[in-house]
């Protein structure tokens, strides 16, 4: 039996519109945040959960963490129904919202931690051990005694992460954990998540718009749009599907002209530079290069790296999101 089993989950919000002039009642519109979403996650998996704003990602996370009750469908996490017996459930999970703090603003980080220890009823010995581990892995030592408000965003996020892992949850939800972080902090955070996942076997569900986080951490990814699951599987495979266009820029010695290229390639010229857009599926890059070399000696060539955000944008477009 999978660790998380979600079946036909649905949730509808009614949103009351502003009353229009001359009407007594306000119109209500139904927003279908989730419409029959099903998936399962095994213990110890690290899954990326992506989709444009308003796709229903947060709603899923809120249902799985017991804050919201769904209208239909079922969900089991570790054999528990999240929205029944909330306390029992949340004792075993951790949640980090990138834009929301769960630590106390004006008090030293360590004091917040020790209050969390009391809230989660963590035995002192286990707490000490876990705190030492997290301090080491997240490099918290320099600012443990500093009030939260004086920390940099990167430090604050590390503290938040430690705070939600003190009680050693089996499942961790991360909602935009790297938002606003600089490159160094991002890399450190990713390394830590990998460590936590491998070392302690914590199941992690990562919601983000940062595709590099997903690419660095998750093999498996789920795509959500308009409340429906649109893709569930391997990340590289998903990307290759939408990897439909690459661009090469090159210049020949002595200004030689381009050889004739197969259909489907788009060529534009700026001075001595040629810009060629092609589809790697129809025309493998190696063949294109051979063709190009046959026309003269190439002085300069740049291939634009595949940009994961572009791929995702193309994917959202195609899925009509």
């Amino acid at each position: 039996m999978p660790y998380i089993a979600v079946d036909q989950l649905s949730k509808t919000f009614t949103v009351r519109k502003k009353r229009e002039k001359g009407r007594l009642t306000r119109e209500k519109t139904a927003v279908h945040a989730l419409q029959g979403v099903s998936f399962s996650v095994e213990q110890g998996e690290l899954v990326g959960y992506i989709g444009p704003n308003g796709a229903g990602k947060s709603t899923t996370v809120k249902i799985l963490s017991g804050i919201l009750t769904p209208d239909g469908g079922s969900a089991l996490v570790g054999g528990r129904v999240p929205w029944q017996n909330r306390k029992e459930h949340v004792r075993r999970i951790g949640v980090v919202f990138g834009q929301r703090s769960q630590l106390w603003w004006d008090v030293p980080v360590i004091d917040s931690f020790s209050l969390l220890k009391d809230i989660y009823r963590v035995p002192t010995e286990a707490y000490q051990k876990r705190l030492a581990e997290l301090t080491e892995a997240l490099d918290l030592a320099p600012f443990l005694r500093t009030p939260l408000r004086l920390l940099s965003l990167g430090q604050r996020m590390r503290a938040e992460l430690a705070g939600s892992l003190l009680h050693s949850p089996e499942l961790l939800f991360l909602d935009e954990p790297t938002i606003g972080l600089d490159a160094v902090s991002k890399l450190a955070l990713r390394d830590f998540l990998k460590y936590e996942n491998e070392k302690n076997g914590t199941t992690i569900l990562l919601t983000t718009h940062d595709m590099e986080d997903i690419a660095a951490l998750c093999r498996r990814v789920m795509v959500l749009g308009h409340g429906k699951k649109l893709y569930d599987g391997d990340l590289p495979e998903l990307l290759s599907r939408y990897d439909t266009q690459r661009v090469i820029t090159l210049r020949y010695d002595g200004g030689a002209a381009l050889p004739p290229l197969p259909d489907g390639c788009q060529v534009s010229r700026e001075g001595a530079d040629y810009k060629i857009a092609y589809s790697p599926q129809a025309l493998p890059t190696a063949r294109l290069l051979t063709l190009l070399q046959s026309a003269g000696s190439i002085r300069e060539l740049t291939a634009q790296p595949e940009n994961i955000d572009h791929l995702i944008a193309a994917m959202y477009r195609e899925m009509g999101l």
Binding site: G66, R86, K87, V90, F97, R100, Q102, Y120
Partner: peptide, 9 residues
């Protein structure tokens, strides 16, 4: 929401 995520009343 944050409070709801903790195992207390």
């Amino acid at each position: 929401d944050t409070l709801l995520l903790r195992p207390r009343g």
